[in-house]
């Protein structure tokens, strides 16, 4: 049982949780992940670490509502408890002195970039962070990442803020402008990671991607998270989550992540119906 100390909405359907987890926070390193379970009937879902407050033993995770479990978690409040917070799991991101590093985050892949950028900068690297969102209102962690990086560059699909375009629009410009880039690390939706990897492939820039496939136990026991990397099957939970992006079979991964689309819909629809029902009752009572 881990207590939620703080919770706030970062943008529509995206909530930040600060969770009391002193032992986990003392051990966790940038790039690792945790598994959360809300309640007795809940799924075990992997979540990236979006911040480590070592002084106070507080773990930050950012949850975007995409289905029943995330929606239910986002109804939790400060003072509530997650039934299980397991971790730190997976291997930490590769941190050493590379030189000029580019950290790229998209969507809820932005928060995990924050501890990674911090660690890379602490290791003596020059860190540029590129973050992107569909529109300005959905952009999160700009302040934190601005502080953690030497330079922050922003893109929005609709041009409402920063560069009009994608994170790869910015990345490509840096490469075309002749900036010497020693390493790129990217966390985000699969299409974004795939686009980043395709951008760095030809200039042969070392590119790490952090994968978040479907998992159950997160300790290597089940193999749900298998991904093909360099033609070999690897388990993202124990061999990753970071892999050499140029070796990852993203098409396979995209298909594997759709394995339970039908079930997710059943669950989510049921949840929304229940939830609306409850809200209506509350409104009815208030009206009385």
């Amino acid at each position: 049982m881990n207590k939620i100390l703080e919770k706030k909405e970062l943008c529509e359907k995206v909530h930040q949780f600060r969770i009391d987890a002193p032992r986990l926070v003392a051990k966790a390193k940038a790039g690792q992940f945790v598994i959360l379970r809300k309640d007795e009937k809940g799924e075990r879902i992997p979540m990236s670490i979006g911040g480590l407050d070592r002084k106070n033993g507080i773990l930050t995770v950012v949850i975007q509502e995409v289905g029943k479990t995330s929606a239910a978690m986002n109804t939790m409040k400060a003072g509530d408890y997650f039934l299980d917070v397991v971790g730190p799991l997976g291997l930490p991101s590769h941190v050493e002195k590379f030189g000029n590093c580019i950290c790229i985050g998209g969507g809820v892949g932005i928060p995990p970039i924050y501890p990674i950028a911090q660690a890379l900068r602490d290791a003596g690297n020059h860190v540029t962070t590129i973050i992107g969102a569909r529109t300005r209102g959905l952009l999160i962690f700009e302040k934190e990442l601005g502080e953690a990086s030497n330079r922050i560059l922003i893109s929005t699909d609709d041009g409402s803020y920063g560069t009009h375009g994608f994170v790869t629009t910015i990345l490509k410009k840096l490469i075309d402008d002749g900036e010497k880039i020693d390493m790129v690390i990217c966390v985000g939706p699969v299409p974004m990671m795939k686009a980043v990897v395709n951008t760095t492939r030809e200039p042969k820039i070392k590119t790490f991607v952090s994968l978040n496939p479907i998992m159950v136990d997160g300790t290597g026991m089940c193999g749900a998270c298998r991904v093909t990397v360099g033609g070999k099957t690897r388990f993202a939970c124990v061999d990753g989550p970071d892999f050499d992006g140029h070796e990852v079979d993203f098409d396979e991964m995209t298909k594997r992540m759709k394995m339970y689309v039908a079930e997710e819909k059943i669950s989510y629809d049921r949840f929304k119906a229940d939830h609306n029902c409850r809200l209506e009752k509350q409104i009815e009572q208030l009206n009385k």
Binding site: K41, G42, E43, K68, V216, E263, I266, S267, R270
Partner: peptide, 12 residues
Amino acid sequence: MAAYDFPDCDTP
């Protein structure tokens, strides 16, 4: 995870 009880339990 009691998936035989889906969707009463969340794991499919």
